[in-house]
Design a protein around this nucleic acid. Structure first.
Lengths: 340, 340
DNA sequence: CTGAAAGCGCTAACAA
DNA sequence: TTGTTAGCGCTTTCAG
């Protein structure tokens, strides 16, 4: 079965293919009658528009490339939900690429997208990414780029993110207000700004409430269940006194809780734990995990809306570069709330 | 900054653009010298191949469309991991579309993919899907299609799946062997074959071990946490005697466990529960959830490998249609193992 | 080993 | 309101 083109439809109706093209694109200068005829014939012959051809000609693909670190994090799958919704509603299709936290793959993804002539790229950078050339180059090439959550600050690239400083502050403040005093801060050794901001927020919260900043209670590592466990192990082995744990994200918190349990410590009675990101599993575990919500779907929708808006304007990178900062929300659950 | 094309490179080197094209495609009839020269110039000028143009000409896009119900299920994100790996290694790119369990969106996804001239489609059907025309039509149009996990049987479409009958049997048998006797089977009201097979397997296990099949202990609904809870609530309200629960997937099992807990019943002491799919959260909850693993990554890799193999053959739908059936694996964890 | 030339299916400017 | 025509950037056949 040969593929049907506008030429086939034209031949069938004894008109030229450009009339057919116009009819299919709902061009105002075509009679309603011809349009109906063309549509009907298209339907009957089983015509499918060849977007490749129209993209080549028009220079627009109506495809947006999306780079996320990994789909396994429910944060990203929810954001995608939001993005996809808005993007599709505006006639765009999403092309997805996972960097798997590798800068090499991130670069590969951008390359692939450029070859495919995507109309723009939305991305959240990998944990490994410390050099930003592959992103700043896009700006030079005038390829629309918008970052979300894991953003690059001061790069004149539009972004949507949460106020991570505030999130860190809120998380720590929450533990303090629940009466926890010796607070361990688990942070990361990644240079990514969101984690740095969260850490700053945590430290400022301690300061604000006149609690000492103890370097021996601050950990730096690769956020993960394993790292959460290992921090608790170290604390335990060093005989440190502590009763609260602030983590950079929920998996680290999960690991911490599991390790605490294994040492016979009760959460939240003996130790309060708070995560970050509101991963889906946090609501299922025992005790249910207190965390900071990043308004995932809203973040996705706002990112996509902003992107769509900018891409319509004559210069995507016109000054000032818009930056949307969303407020984090504290989700208090069992892991940090002592039954009084 | 104007986009660089092979013409620019040709002009720069005083050769024709067709030589440049051949050089870039590593054509055997081009001297190593010219190739080097062309590559170097391409690099220097910042050339990016326009895949849209080459796709239009060659009729191949090297893009595979993937339709999954939803990314939030870790089963799908893991399978995607496997698929992406193999697909990329073979020079293809993945275009992702979520049906969100809606047949309407599923059809929309296929349409989008066809317009984009993807080289083929890999899909797992939505729960809502009972009519298969949009899939069987692909076969008629000779568009390569491969299904995984949620497949359509007897449609002459290649697929990769697990032996769901065996999975259902194993799950039920496991509970029986653990000493549970009054076993509730939660199934679904979806027509999808995988759930039907699991149910059959469960029932046959009861038969095999000479346990009665009690229709009042079989539930049909929409697999979800809520449905799991509601089944337990009904059982409780009806005063049914039961001590084992087989579920169609892990979220239903999660709901069941939570409801059981709320009624003061202990899992696994009073009631044993087994899930299906080995969702990531199952390992985090208390008690840790016994489940059936579907070898997600392997499934993805096998699906992609088979697809790549078939797409290279002259006729994708040549008889016999290959079907790969993977063995399910029982993952015994706390929710079904009584400490003796 | 390289060049010339046709054309993939569509959009859009210009004519009529 | 419709037709004519020229490409978009590349692949590929046929010549040389």
């Amino acid at each position: 079965m040969k593929k049907i083109t506008i030429l086939d439809i034209a031949r069938e109706l004894n008109i030229t293919f450009s009339t057919v093209a116009r009819a299919l694109n709902d061009h105002p200068a075509i009679s309603t009658n011809t349009k109906a005829l063309v549509r009907e014939t298209a339907e009957r012959l089983g015509y499918t528009r060849n977007k490749i051809a129209s993209s080549l000609r028009s220079g627009k693909t109506k495809v947006i490339g999306l780079i996320v670190p990994r789909l396994e994090l429910s944060f990203f799958s929810s954001v995608i939900h939001g993005i996809e919704h808005v993007i599709n509603a505006n006639g765009y299709t999403l092309l997805l690429y996972q960097s798997r936290e590798s800068i090499k793959r991130e670069i590969k993804g951008i390359e692939t997208f450029l070859q495919l002539q995507v109309d723009g790229i939305i991305a959240s950078i990998s944990l490994e990414t410390t050099s930003y050339k592959h992103f700043t180059d896009l700006r030079k090439q005038k390829v629309p780029l918008l970052l979300f959550d894991r953003i690059i600050e001061n790069a004149d690239i539009p972004y949507v993110s949460i106020n991570d400083y505030k999130g860190g502050f809120m998380a720590t403040e929450h533990l303090i207000k629940q009466g926890y005093k010796d607070i361990v801060i688990i942070s990361t050794n990644h240079k990514i700004s969101i984690f740095q901001e969260r850490l700053k927020g945590s430290i400022d919260a301690l300061k604000f409430y006149n609690l000492p900043i103890r370097e021996d209670l601050i950990f730096y590592g690769n956020p993960s269940r394993e790292f959460g466990e290992s921090c608790i192990r170290q604390l335990y082995q060093n005989g440190e006194k502590f009763d609260g744990i602030v983590t950079p994200e929920d998996y680290t918190a999960l690991g911490a809780i599991q390790a605490l349990k294994s040492y016979g410590l009760k959460v939240p009675e003996d130790v309060g734990v708070i995560g970050f990101a509101n991963e889906a599993f946090g609501d299922y575990i025992t005790p249910r995990l207190t965390t900071i919500d990043q308004q995932n779907i809203a973040m996705g929708e706002q990112a996509a809306s902003l992107f769509v808006k900018l891409i319509k304007s004559p210069d995507f990178y016109a000054q000032p570069i818009p930056k949307i900062i969303i407020d984090p929300i504290l989700i208090p659950r069992e892991s940090s709330v002592r039954k009084s």
